[in-house]
């Protein structure tokens, strides 16, 4: 009998209202409900959160390092999407 029969879940926590949920780590549990409870006990012992998401690790679809070139490099050559690309006269430069 192996523990890994208990599924792995990823834990995301909103540290305070107005902020995004942020990945904090993972844990093992029987189901989503238990994962939520354990996330509370494991990752918010010092009131680190006001909201928790748990996601089955197996359900996460992640980009691969091999894809990085195709995924991200094409956007490196679009400096015109950044505010700093445009030099405006001082009078209106706080735009």
């Amino acid at each position: 009998m192996q523990d890994n029969a208990l599924e792995l879940f990823e834990v995301f926590i909103r540290s305070k209202r107005g902020l995004d949920h942020k990945h904090v780590g993972s844990l093992h549990s029987e189901d989503h409900e238990q994962a939520l409870e354990y996330a509370r006990d494991v990752y918010t012992r010092r009131s680190e959160g006001v909201s928790i998401w748990v996601v089955r690790s197996a359900d996460i679809c992640a980009s691969q390092e091999d894809d990085a070139e195709d995924f991200f490099d094409p956007n490196d050559d679009k400096p015109y999407r950044h505010a700093t690309y445009y030099t405006l006269p001082d009078a209106v430069n706080n735009m």
């Binding site: 523990d3 208990l6 093992h28 354990y38 006990d41 012992r45």
Partner: peptide, 11 residues
């Protein structure tokens, strides 16, 4: 019985 529960029960 496993680490998560150890932590939770301590609470």
């Amino acid at each position: 019985p496993f680490l998560e529960e150890d932590i939770a029960y301590a609470n």
